[in-house]
Design a protein around this nucleic acid. Sequence first.
DNA 1: GGAATAGTGTCTTTTAGACATTATCGG
DNA 2: CCGATAATGTCTAAAAGACACTATTCC
Lengths: 244, 244
Amino acid sequence: MDDDSWVPPAVLIAVDLVIFTLRESRLQVLLVERGVDPFRGALALPGGFLAHAEEDLLAAAHRELAEEAGFAADQLHLEQLSVYGTPGRDPRGRVVSVAYLAITPRLPEPVAGTDASDAWWIPTDRALSPDTRLAFDHRRIVADGVERARTKLEHSALATAFCPPLFTISELQEVYEAVWGVRLDPRNFYRKVQSVNGFIEPAGPVRKTENGRPARLFRPGPRQALHPPMNRPPEPGASERRPI
Amino acid sequence: MDDDSWVPPAVLIAVDLVIFTLRESRLQVLLVERGVDPFRGALALPGGFLAHAEEDLLAAAHRELAEEAGFAADQLHLEQLSVYGTPGRDPRGRVVSVAYLAITPRLPEPVAGTDASDAWWIPTDRALSPDTRLAFDHRRIVADGVERARTKLEHSALATAFCPPLFTISELQEVYEAVWGVRLDPRNFYRKVQSVNGFIEPAGPVRKTENGRPARLFRPGPRQALHPPMNRPPEPGASERRPI
DNA sequence: GGAATAGTGTCTTTTAGACATTATCGG
DNA sequence: CCGATAATGTCTAAAAGACACTATTCC
C-alpha cells in the first residue's frame, strides 16, 4: 500500500448553509438560483468554497452567510449539521462539503442584501418534493436539516430562535406545529412549556394586541438543553405500545 | 474578492475513528501510540488520510478500521460524528478530519490484528483527564464521542451494540450505567427495557450461568429508534423543577 | 440453610392528554 | 351582546421511581 512517493490526495472544501425560518406558518429554507454552470438555473443551498487555505470552516460559513444571504456575521447561530463527501457528488471534482444549520426569525419578504443571484424562501416540503430540482445532493442535506431541527426542538430551546426577541406562547406553539407538522393542544402546550425549567421567562407584564385577549410576552430563558424534553406526538404510521 | 486567477484552496482529508467498547464495567476507547513525528509517542485515535482522491469517506473509515484496529470491513457500524477543521489543528498543514463513531462488544485483551503501532483500550475518563496527552485535538473528539454515545443511548438501541449477540438484561444495564455514569435500579430497568417496543426480544427459553439465578437471554430487536426513550437520570448538579 | 442474582408485584408521585371554564380584548 | 384568543382548572390514564417480595441457582 505505502511507498515513499505516496502523498495524500488533496480535495476541495465547501460549506453549505441550511437556513430555516418560519413564514406563513410553514418551515421554509433559503435557496438561491445558481447562475453558473454545474446545475445552472437549479436551486441550491447558499454556500461555496473556502476562500483561502487558512480560513476556518465556521468563518467560511459566516462569510457565505453574509455574501449570499446578507446576514451580519454573528447575527445567527450556526451549528454543524453533517459532512457530504461522496466522490461523485460534484461534477467539478472531489469536493467535501460541510453543512451548517442556522435558524432565523421571520424576515421581510425577500432576502435582505443578496449579493449573488436571487434567493428565495421555499417551504421545505416543496423543496423536498420530487418536482423541485435541487443542485448536487442538496435535497438530502435539506432533509437532514429538517430531521435535525425536529429532534432539536424536542431537547433544546431551538424553537425560540424562530421567534423575535419577545414572543407569545402561541407564537412558540406555531413553531412546534410547523416544524413537527402536527397540531398541539394550546392549553396543554401552555402548561407544558412553562413547566420546563429555564425554557422561557416572562418579559414584564407587557402585552400585545391582535384579535382576542392580549397575550403575555416571554423571552428565551437561560436553559439551552430542555429537561424534561418537549414531547413530540408519535407518528400515526407505526403501531406503538407492546402487544402485551 | 473574486478575480479570474482565483482557485479554491485544496486541503488534506483525514478520517478519525472513535471506537468504544465496555471493559471492566467502564466505557473505553481505542487509542494507538503514534510512531511518527507529529506527536510521536502520544496517544491518538486510529485514523489517517484518504488513500486516493476517489476514496469515499466511509470507505476510508472502514479501511482504517481494518488497518489500525483489525476489524473486518462491515463488522462494525460506523456513524459520522463531526468534522474538525480548525486551521492550526495539524502542524503538517491544513487538514480537515471527519470523525466516525463505532461500538464493539467486549473483545479479548489487546486488539486483534494491529497493523501499525500498538493499540490499547483506555477508559474514557482517563483519556479525557488532563494528565493524558492526546495528539491533535483528539481529546475534544473523544469528548464529543462520549457525549454522542450518551444521548444515543437514550433514543436508540445503540446499547445492544456493546453486547454480544445474546445478552442478559443485567449486561444491558451495565452498558447504561457505564456510559451514563450512574446507578440504575435493576427492577425498574428490567421493566422499562422490556416495555419499549422492539428494543430487545427474548432469545428462546435459553439461560446462562454465573453466580445466582440464571438469567434469560435476549437479542436486539428490530426497532432502531426507541419510543418512548430511555430516561437518563438528571445530573445532580443543577437545581431542577420550577420554583413555583 | 445462606449468599447471590433474576424476576414479579405493589404502591406513590409525577406527567401527559383530554377537555370545561373563565378572562379580556375588539367590535 | 358576539367572536376570538388567552389563561386557568379539573379529571383520567399512563408512566417513573421507590422498594418488598418471590424464584432459582451455587455453595
